[in-house]
Write a protein that binds this DNA or RNA. Structure first.
Length: 498
RNA sequence: GGGGCUAUGGUGUAACUUGGUAUCACUUAUGGUUUGGGACCAUACAAUCGGGGUUCAAAUCCUCGUAGCCCCA
């Protein structure tokens, strides 16, 4: 054994001796090593676990509940936009991919192929996204201007053969998402849809997941393979890295032409329609966990949490029955919040507090013999840990009130971090110092691939996030690119990213 | 894409250098005493990642595979 190995082993030993091994808890602090903190939390809070095949994971019930909350919220939005759910096959013939050259080129490196079967001599790939297979159907479904707009969505899994390091929820070879695809008669309608859905994603993050995002257009370098323009929502995490949390693409007419989708207009002429697609994935789960979790474990935003309350009765033999009866009464009174009544005898109240905090339940109600006489409970919010006494008859009012306050507090904290992280700079030196301080750097930018490549290379990882929509994304007259000095074409955010 | 490290009950680990009965704790189960911020006693269940090799003998050495983590591009 080499010295180096011995040292590693000794370190491991020392660490394990100094740690509390029976702990549910985490061995690192979020502020010290967020990456390790995240891995431990996702596993120990039983959101997910590694699967036998590389880069894949099992979503456990506690994690899937979060996905269900996202689905429940967003499926309603989809329907409000008159988008219908469908299901398209997992297998896509190779020739379908090849019809759109940019798309094929962009996705080839991460396609997974079915090895032992081919149909009619043609290979089948597992879908990395469904433009190709959907457009094939669209070519039959779209004939007349009366068939438009055609608006469909699917909730499904997709496969992208990642070669980079994979992370639970954040980057994996298979993941769950929703992909909406709309076909419009005009460019204007298509554009509007692309931006509308981007806005819906923003609202989803703010209203359900309780964090802010930057909405904007991706650079040429970062846009979707085959798109005219890609827009994204970008979340900025506490460790100073951005993460793309959702995308909306204006796919223009490329796929339409490639798959021969056309319609007869009111003018009796044949026209090529316009095409959009937009998606969010289980990556949002990871983003939410990193955004709100703390050193005590998971923090579920109130609107995401299925069980919004845990009731911990304090049980002594003499008063046991009376306390349990009252706890049960409270549980029924607050049934709409799906309270958990933790009446286990085998662990102490203190254990329960720590356990439910770790699992992120938003509110805790403690009730013991002393409270019984006073007609009150001890009431604790997960995000701030403050204890207060609440009269039992006031609970029905206080619970929804505190859930809303907690949502707002989580959002405000995330918003404050985002606002404090944005640094506007005009030259390379200022850029580098802001970037090294893990800021979200706002610059005038030429928007060119070569310039962006150079920046990424020079900094060892700075990438453009997006260009804000509207006036905010427009540089002042005469503004120059912060790096190359050519005339700036846009205002862009740069940062480290996941 | 290149390099390094790791894999032992459900969990965290010891034993590996120098081959020989697999350690300890937690968890779990049962019984009892407990319970307002991580209670305790007793007993019991439970493990060497997969394939191949070396050897009288492999957790330990060699080899291939699989998976995870880290560093560089």
């Amino acid at each position: 054994m080499t010295d180096e190995n011995k040292n590693k082993k000794n370190n491991k030993k020392n660490n394990s001796n100094s740690e509390d091994q029976n702990s549910l808890g985490l061995t690192v602090k979020k502020s010290e090593d967020m990456s390790e903190w995240y891995s431990q939390l996702v596993l120990k809070a039983e959101l997910a676990e590694h699967a036998p095949s590389k880069g894949c994971y099992v979503i456990r019930p506690r994690g899937y509940k979060i996905w269900e909350a996202i689905q429940k919220y967003f499926d309603k939005i989809i329907k409000q936009h008159n988008v219908d759910n469908t299901y398209f096959p997992l297998f896509i013939p190779e020739s379908f991919f090849q019809k759109e050259a940019d798309h094929f080129e962009g996705f080839t490196p991460e396609l997974a192929w079915v090895a032992n079967k081919d149909e009619g001599g043609e290979r089948l790939a597992l879908r990395p996204t469904s433009e190709a297979v959907m457009c094939d159907s669209f070519s039959r479904w779209v004939r007349s201007w009366r068939d438009l707009p055609l608006k469909i969505n699917q909730w499904c899994n997709i496969v992208r053969w990642e070669t980079k390091a994979t992370r639970l929820f954040l980057r994996s070879r298979e993941f769950l998402w929703q992909e909406g695809h709309c076909v419009y008669a005009t460019e204007e309608e298509c554009n509007l849809d692309v931006l509308d859905m981007l806005e819906e994603y923003k609202i989803l993050c703010e209203e359900l997941l309780a964090f802010p995002v930057l909405t904007g257009r991706k650079s040429e370098k970062e846009k979707f393979a085959g798109a005219l323009a890609t827009y994204s929502i970008e979340a900025f995490l506490p460790d100073g890295k951005a993460i793309q949390a959702g995308t909306s693409h204006n796919l223009g007419q490329g796929f339409m032409k490639a798959f021969d989708v056309s319609f007869l207009g009111q003018d009796g002429q044949k026209h090529t329609p316009w095409h959009s697609s937009w998606g969010i994935s289980t990556r949002l789960i990871g983003t939410m966990v990193m955004m709100h979790g703390d050193d005590k474990g998971l923090v579920l935003p109130p609107r995401v949490a299925f069980n919004k309350i845990v009731i911990v009765p304090i049980l002594f033999d003499k008063t046991r029955e009376a306390v349990l009866n009252k706890a049960d009464e409270i549980k029924n009174m607050l049934a709409e919040f799906h309270p958990i009544l933790d009446d286990r005898d085998e662990v102490t109240p203190g254990w329960k507090y720590n356990e439910w905090e770790f699992k992120g339940v938003p509110l805790r109600i403690e009730i013991g013999p002393r409270d019984l006489d006073a007609g009150q409970v001890v009431f604790v919010r997960r995000d701030n840990g403050e204890k207060q006494f609440i009269k039992i008859e006031d609970l029905k009012e206080v619970v929804p009130e505190q859930l809303e306050l907690m949502h707002q507090a989580l959002f405000d904290k995330a918003k404050l971090h985002l606002d404090e992280s944005i640094f506007e700079v005009n030259d390379w030196d200022a850029f580098m110092s802001a970037y090294e301080a893990k800021k979200l750097v706002k610059v005038n930018f030429c928007g060119e691939d070569e310039c962006e490549d150079w920046i990424k290379d020079k900094t060892g990882g700075a990438s453009s996030r997006n260009v804000p929509n509207g006036d905010e994304g427009m540089p002042a007259e005469g503004a120059k690119c912060f790096h190359c000095g050519k005339p700036a074409t846009c205002v862009t955010f740069f940062s480290r990213s996941y």
